[in-house]
Computed example of a mutant assay.
Amino acid sequence: MDLDKTDRAILMALQADGRATNASVAESVGLSETPCARRLKRLEADGYIEAYRAVLSRQALGLGLMAFTQVRFGVHSRELSDRFEREIQAIPRIVSCHNVSGSADYLLLVVARDLEDYGIFMRDVLRTLPGVTAVESMLSLGEVKRNAGLPLL
């Protein structure tokens, strides 16, 4: 389905504020509430909206360190990759994981309280995951842009 200008405006409004009421979204996109609600239900049913969630503060939660971690495998097999991917699903401090091309096999975004906490996590968890033979970390010195939502091209 192609998104029209109004659908895109609804999606942008919800990306900016996932708790926006139907009335406020309708007003911001120039619709009455009923047509806006119908469009919203259709956007949800068609899979454009996957979920609604709160964005939590890392600082308030005491997670001051963010690391981009490259993971390499020594042996590449489907079974090993599947085991690795299953295990990382259960590790909350791995915020995201991507299977990538290039010198690494996976790129993880990991949060920790501080450098010592991250070091312990590396030693006791990351390096013990199935297939992992090398781990390289890049520590974030400051977040310039936070996930602001997807562009609606």
Rank of each mutant, 00 (worst) to 15 (best):
L3N: 10
D117C: 01
A54S: 10
Y106D: 01
A13K: 10
F73R: 02
G64I: 03
R39G: 08
G149E: 01
P130A: 10
S32I: 06
L115D: 01
L150W: 03
L80R: 15
A67K: 02
R58T: 08
A112D: 04
D4L: 06
S32A: 10
T69L: 01
H76V: 02
V111T: 04
S24N: 10
P35Q: 12
R123L: 10
V25S: 00
N147G: 12
E87C: 14
V75R: 14
G131E: 05
E33Q: 15
V29A: 08
E50T: 05
A51K: 05
L126M: 12
M66F: 04
G30D: 07
A9H: 00
Y48P: 00
M138G: 02
S77G: 07
P151T: 11
R146D: 15
R72C: 01
G149D: 00
G131A: 09
V132K: 09
A16C: 05
P35C: 05
R39Q: 04
D7R: 09
V25E: 06
Y48N: 06
L63A: 02
L152E: 00
R86A: 10
V110M: 12
E33I: 13
L11I: 05
L107S: 08
F73T: 02
L61H: 15
D4C: 04
A67D: 02
S101K: 10
L152N: 04
V71S: 14
Q59A: 13
S57F: 00
